[in-house]
């Protein structure tokens, strides 16, 4: 599951939150199939998607979720 955010600052925030909550996340560049612009996203396992969504909602961090994307 790939989470994309509105800004790099949001990515940094989200990564910190995941880390604090013991969620394994992987910082990855935004796939070229999604955007040609330079950006970073967070990859988490499908199992952890709900937990991450809940935390992000609580912290009011806006995100988009992508699944089955081409790298």
């Amino acid at each position: 599951m790939l989470f994309l955010f509105e800004s790099t600052h949001a990515v940094i925030k989200a990564e910190r939150i995941c880390d604090k909550n013991g969620i394994t996340c992987k910082i990855v560049p935004v796939p070229r199939s999604i955007s040609s612009q330079c950006g970073m996203g967070i990859e988490v396992s499908e199992k952890q998607e709900k937990i991450v969504v809940n935390i992000l909602l609580k912290k009011k961090i806006i995100y988009n979720i992508y699944n089955n994307y081409k790298k």
């Binding site: 790099t8 940094i12 990564e15 910082i27 990855v28």
Partner: peptide, 17 residues
Amino acid sequence: NDLGKILIQGFMNTIKE
């Protein structure tokens, strides 16, 4: 520093691609 940390993770996680 915060940005640099995110970038290096993105870099290392993408080498294999």
